[in-house]
């Protein structure tokens, strides 16, 4: 296998006396979908937050495309190309779809109107937003100016994914994307994840839903007690194996440690 594009070594994060990450390792290879599973409190979300810049680790290193990186904020991580779709989606319900997609990176008009009057280029942002949604097959959402609160849960997820995919992202992290969705909407989101992969963007998928993970993931990272226990190939292991490793009922022997 080629070099990992995102790799983490010996990451440690402590909250008071609680060790959330205990010398944790993590690898993501180009073009793959990596499932991340682990029991509640195993430290998955802390790991994800460290990758997305929401949490600063106490020690350890994160490498992106071979270069050492350090993120002081989610914006810094986004600028470096790591986009995260949060479980809460991080959308502003009363703003429009286009406003949401460009929140925090609005485009201004050129010349005097843009530089001095700071006027936003709404037309351009709406056009790009529409293009990005079309790319992901979400353009049945007709009015790019309707507010996000008028959309269904699946549509909102779609907007959030489109936003993550829109801005030159190298990696997309998705935290429990199907947790709040119905069966049909979940299917649509899984299709979206496969479309991202088809575009060549690797996806880190955190989920409690084993069937979803086993359906789309190329590899599964099992997190236990603040560190990576092992990585398994979902085609060679059953879901019950994975649950057994995750909960400590069974030891993974003879499995690749990377």
């Amino acid at each position: 296998m080629s070099e990992p594009m995102l790799s983490v070594r010996n990451l440690v994060k402590k909250y008071g006396r609680v060790t959330a990450l205990d010398h944790c390792d993590f690898d993501l290879y180009p073009g793959e979908i990596l499932g991340v599973i682990g029991d509640n409190g195993a430290g998955k979300s802390t790991l994800i937050k460290a990758l997305s810049g929401a949490v600063q680790p106490d020690s350890g290193e994160i490498h992106l495309n071979g270069k050492k990186v350090q993120f002081s904020s989610p914006i810094a991580a986004q600028d470096a190309g790591i986009a995260t779709v949060y479980q809460t989606l991080a959308l502003s319900p009363s703003l429009s779809i286009a406003d949401n997609m460009f929140l925090g990176r609005e485009l201004r008009k050129s010349g005097f109107i843009g530089k001095v009057l700071r006027q936003l280029d709404k037309k351009k942002m709406q056009r790009i937003a529409r293009e990005k949604l079309t790319e992901l097959g979400l353009m049945t959402i007709q009015n790019i100016n309707q507010t996000v609160e008028t959309l269904s849960g699946g549509q909102r997820q779609g907007i959030s994914v489109a936003r993550a995919a829109a801005f030159d992202s190298k990696v997309i992290i998705m935290d429990e994307p199907t947790a709040a969705l119905g069966v049909k909407e979940s299917r649509r989101v899984l299709e979206l994840i496969l479309q991202l992969k088809a575009k060549g963007i690797p996806v880190v998928l955190i989920s409690h839903n084993m069937p979803h993970i086993f359906e789309v993931a190329d590899r599964v990272h099992i997190h236990r007690l603040g560190r990576r226990l092992c990585t398994i190939n979902p085609k060679e292991h059953s879901m019950s194996d994975a649950v057994a490793y995750m909960t400590g009922a069974k030891e993974p022997d003879g499995i690749m440690a990377t």
Partner: peptide
């Protein structure tokens, strides 16, 4: 508007 609507979401969005 975004800050008033949902400050956490706004922060995460950048």
């Amino acid at each position: 508007y975004a800050v008033g609507d949902d400050p956490q979401a706004a922060e995460l969005a950048g």
